Amino acid sequence: MDRSIQIKAMASAQRLTVLRLLAEPQKHFGHQWSADPVEFGVCMTFIAEALAVAQPTASRHLEILRQAGFITVRKHLKWSYCKRDERALGDYLDWLKTELSAVK
């Protein structure tokens, strides 16, 4: 994984907000009717609404998170659904902890 993309993904308050919201999809997106937000993911439209940004802006943030490996995107019909990748996030946090504590 390209760590520079991951660092870039984490360098945005809005992208961090997305990751926090997706940590508890039922709590924040329980009103999603098209698919179970926990099992299937959260529709990009609802993420844009939660961020109070236009959909193209939200899509750009989500694409950076996807490139970093922090979310997966699943398409169904005309919608795209996002879900956190807990393994990738854990790997990144482990790497960052090692990098910041290691004497080289």
Rank of each mutant, 00 (worst) to 15 (best):
K78V: 13
S59F: 03
D2Y: 05
V103F: 01
Y92H: 11
Q32P: 06
A52E: 15
K78H: 11
L62I: 08
Q26T: 15
K97C: 00
L100G: 11
R74A: 07
S12D: 15
Q55C: 01
P37V: 03
L22Y: 06
K8M: 11
L62N: 04
A54Q: 02
T45N: 01
W79N: 08
A52P: 04
V42D: 08
S4D: 12
W33P: 09
L89S: 02
L62Q: 01
E63D: 10
E63N: 12
I64R: 01
K75Q: 06
F70K: 09
E99D: 00
G90H: 11
E49T: 08
T17C: 13
Q32T: 12
H76V: 14
F29E: 04
I5W: 05
W33E: 15
Q14C: 12
A88K: 05
R60P: 01
Q14R: 15
R60A: 06
L16N: 15
W95R: 03
W79K: 04
A9F: 13
K27L: 08
Q67L: 08
S80T: 07
L96M: 05
T57R: 03
F29Y: 10
P25F: 13
E99W: 00
P37D: 05
Q14H: 15
D91G: 06
T57E: 04
L89V: 07
G30L: 09
C82F: 07
L21Q: 13
E39H: 02
V18M: 14
K97M: 08
S34F: 07
W33C: 12
I47A: 02
K78S: 14
A58W: 04
S80V: 02
D85W: 02
V42M: 10
K104T: 00
T17A: 14
E24Q: 01
W95N: 00
L62P: 09
S12P: 14
Q67T: 02
W79I: 08
A88Q: 12
M1F: 06
V53Y: 07
V18W: 05
V18H: 13
S12G: 13
A68H: 07
S101L: 09
Y81V: 06
V73M: 14
Y92N: 05
T45V: 05
T57K: 07
